[in-house]
Design a binder for these strands. Structure first.
Lengths: 186, 186
DNA sequence: AAAAGGTGTCTAATTTTTAGACGTTTTGCA
DNA sequence: TGCAAAACGTCTAAAAATTAGACACCTTTT
C-alpha cells in the first residue's frame, strides 16, 4: 500500500548533494575539496564562519562539516560550539559534523547536546570521513511516512498516559473515537 | 481550537507518578525512599538490577533512577550501561536518570548516546536531585498534539526534498493534493 | 526543440473525523 | 465497603478530508 524507498534511490542520485566545509585552514579546505568531490555534487568551502548563515540562505546545503577551532591559540572549541548552535537554530534539519583537533570528550558531550550529528578527529582517515558523512546523510534520508510518524506518536502518548485512551486522545487533540479508528488501522 | 495543557495540570496530579530506584546499596535506597516520598506517588526500590524488566512489566513506571556501579570494585560503569540499554530497549518511553559515583565524562558520553535522560553524581544534593527528576518528567509530559507532530514532520520532509512538493508527498505517503491541503491548514 | 518532471487547480467518489449520546465497567477515595 | 467520577465501547448523522485522475502551464535536462 504505502510505497517506501530510499530517497537516494528514488531521485536516482549518484551523489550526496551539497556539502559545506568550514575551516580557517585553507590547506585543509583544499584537501577536503579534493577528497569529497567524488562523493558530493557540490563542495562549498568557507574560511570564515561569519558567512555561514548568509551562504545557507542562498544555497541549499545538505550537510555541514564544521571545524571547532577558529581563532589561533584558542582550543576550547567555544567558537565551534557557538557556530554549531547558530547553524542548528536557523537550520535544524541540516546535519552538522564536527572536526576537532584532538579527542576532547567534554567538547564531545557539549557537541552532542547541541545537536551535532557526528565527530571526526584531526588528523582524519579519508575513508572513515567519507563513510561517516555518507552514514549521516543515509540515516537522515530514511523515509518515514506520515502514517508511521503518527502511529509512533500515538504509541508514545498512550504509553505516557499508562493506557488511558480518553486522556491520550485529549492530549493528541483528537476525538476518542478517532483514536480508536487510528488504532484499529495502524 | 486545539486544547493544550500540561498533563500534570490536566490530571490534577500533585505528585509525579511512580519512580523506580535501582542501587545495590541498601542505605542509599532508604535515603532515596525517604527523600522522594513527598514528590512521587510510589517509590519502588531494587537492590538487584536483574529484576528490573520483570518489575517493569508488572508495574507502570514513570522514571528510573539507575546506579552505574553494581559489582563492588568494578567502577567502569559497564554494568550500569548494560542495564540502561536493556531498559531502553524494552521501554523506550521511560526516562532513565543515571547515578554515578563521580563525574566520569566518558561514561557521560556513552550514557547520553544510550539515551539517558540526565546524570546525578554521588554524593548528591537533595534539592538538585529532586529538581532534575521533576525536570525530566515535566519535559517528557509536554503535550504535543498529533497536528503538531504532523506539521513538524511535513516541514522536515519538504526541507529534505529542498522544496520539491511532489517528491515530499510521495515520501510522506500521501497525495500531492493532500499535502497542499495540510500546508494550507497548518 | 523535445522530453521529463514539477506546479497549481479542478471534480466527483470515498473515507475519515467530528460532536454527541448511551449503557457498562473500572477506578479513586471516603 | 459503597458511592461518585472517570473511562470504556459502541452507535448515529453531519461535516470535513483524502483520494485518483485530469488539465494547462512552467522549469530543467538533454
Amino acid at each position: 500500500m504505502i510505497f517506501r524507498q530510499n530517497l537516494r534511490t528514488f531521485a536516482a542520485m549518484s551523489k550526496y548533494g551539497t556539502i559545506l566545509i568550514v575551516d580557517d585552514n585553507a590547506a585543509i579546505l583544499t584537501a577536503m575539496r579534493y577528497l569529497l568531490d567524488d562523493t558530493f555534487e557540490n563542495v562549498l568551502t568557507l574560511e570564515c564562519p561569519d558567512d555561514i548563515l548568509k551562504l545557507m540562505t542562498q544555497q541549499s546545503i545538505d550537510i555541514v562539516l564544521l571545524d571547532m577551532n577558529f581563532t589561533l591559540g584558542v582550543n576550547s572549541g567555544q567558537e565551534g560550539l557557538f557556530w554549531l548552535r547558530t547553524i542548528r537554530k536557523q537550520h535544524p534539519e541540516t546535519p552538522v559534523v564536527l572536526l576537532t583537533a584532538y579527542a576532547d570528550v567534554s567538547l564531545a558531550v557539549k557537541g552532542l547536546k547541541s545537536g551535532a550529528a557526528d565527530f571526526i578527529t584531526k588528523p582524519w582517515d579519508n575513508d572513515e570521513l567519507v563513510r561517516k558523512l555518507k552514514d549521516v546523510l543515509d540515516m537522515q534520508n530514511e523515509i518515514v511516512s506520515l502514517d508511521e510518524v503518527e502511529r509512533e506518536h500515538i504509541r508514545r502518548t498512550i504509553d505516557r498516559c499508562h493506557g488511558n485512551l480518553t486522556q491520550a486522545a485529549e492530549l493528541l487533540g483528537i476525538t476518542r473515537q478517532t483514536l480508536y479508528n487510528k488504532m484499529k488501522r495502524l
